[in-house]
Design a protein around this nucleic acid. Structure first.
Lengths: 242, 242
DNA sequence: ATCATTATATTTGTCCTACAAATAAATTTT
DNA sequence: AAAATTTATTTGTAGGACAAATATAATGAT
């Protein structure tokens, strides 16, 4: 546990941000937030390390405690710090995706962003084959098979069934961040496609690939076969953008 | 432009969060933040819409103005709102990746998160082939060729050269969010691999694929060939995890 | 001496008041 | 009607106060 309480004032006074005048000038809260993050980086803080208390930070940065609190509130939201009565602020393990999670509201996003999210899911689906084949276990395959067996009509797949099947694939990659990321993208993906689908002609795929097909290839096929099948499985989506 | 000022108090009082007692109980700031985001979603707010002023929100939510300000500060950081003197808060276009950007500090991330980030870049690299082939232009290819030509030794590629080449590929996908996301991942990817590389035996790839090879395939080859080549290009990284 | 219990000190969390700064809107002038 | 000026409104920042929740210190029991 480090106590790096002497660094803040230096950071704030030498902060390069003072020499830039961006389009919207920065509030004191913005400045304090930037200073604190820079301070964390330059001091090599690790989870568990203690920070100076709010009053001390306010004094060193020549701002009121309110401004410090507003900046700290932001960092708290990102999971970068935790507050302890008497002990003060402690560095914590950030949450990589909490920011994305909080802004993922289709009403607020631009058309460009919505399109980007839609495509991002497709990029990610096409990218996981190596991981699936390298990390699949007997148990994974059994569970995936059970999911597929519980899905009645392979041609008409509900959202829940999509989420169950693909969610299991994501889990099988052994990459929690990836799983969480894809899971975050799905509702918006669906929102985008629903909007598109309602406005366009129906796209027919000659030989659609089902969840069951994907399962079989994952069980006994090759990476390349799986990826090709995944592309066909997602063809209706690819056809809407490429 | 909508004025939805009657919804907030209802949201706060009926907020399901009041019935849950999570491990760490929520501060008022957390609650206000959650209420506001829910309010945005349920009211279907769009960029440009006006929000009630701080004082009014504080009254309706039965909290002090400071608490409202702390919550709003968070939303401001995410780009979801902008403040205007006299006019008040206005809904804005969120920034999908600003949260990720702010927490991407390897010292703070867990080993699991670092591994996830490392792999996520690989997943994404393997997933973009379809987009590259569908969207490449003559100009893109010329620019990519110039980048490759400026890179002297195909076997010893600097970080800057990596960023230049791969960054151009990302740009060619036509997906700005993807480009920005991958660009965010690169320093941490490098940090992870540098740590691994310094601790492990050197991995030799029998027939390494260079940037120039990738360029040629992208110009005149097929999606499958490109992806296979990309896998080989990244083989040293895949070998370190799979 | 060690462990458990209690008390105290410290910091955060929330509230309040005040006023400067930056517009957006209203009013006046041309 | 358009431009210039003034006013009103809201945000941004400051400072003070005190309750709540521990972390730390002190005390008591074994």
């Amino acid at each position: 546990m480090h106590d790096h309480c002497t660094g803040i004032a230096n950071i704030m006074t030498t902060n390069k941000l003072d020499t830039l005048e961006p389009l919207g000038s920065l509030s004191m809260t913005d400045r304090v937030e930037n200073s604190l993050r820079l301070y964390f980086t330059e001091s090599g803080f690790k989870p568990g390390d203690s920070l100076p208390n709010e009053q001390e930070m306010a004094q060193k940065l020549n701002v009121s405690r309110n401004v410090v609190r507003e900046a700290l509130s932001r960092l708290r939201m990102l999971g970068m710090i935790e507050a302890r009565p008497r002990r003060g602020m402690v560095i914590a393990q950030p949450d990589l995706l909490v920011g994305l999670e909080k802004v993922m509201n289709p009403s607020l996003l631009s058309q460009d962003n919505l399109k980007d999210v839609f495509e991002l899911r497709l990029i990610l689906e096409m990218g996981i084959a190596e991981f699936l084949f390298a990390r699949k276990t007997e148990q994974d395959l059994n569970e995936l098979e059970a999911i597929v067996a519980s899905q009645n009509d392979a041609r008409v797949v509900s959202k829940e069934e999509e989420i169950a099947f693909h969610g299991k694939l994501y889990e099988m990659t052994g990459n929690d961040t990836f799983k969480r990321f894809q899971t975050l993208l799905m509702p918006t993906f669906d929102h985008v496609f629903t909007g598109y689908y309602n406005q366009s002609k129906k796209i027919e795929i000659p030989n659609p690939v089902t969840h069951h097909d994907l399962f079989k290839i994952l069980k006994t096929g090759t990476v390349e076969e799986f990826r090709k099948a995944m592309y066909t499985h997602l063809a209706v989506y690819f056809a809407s953008i490429l």
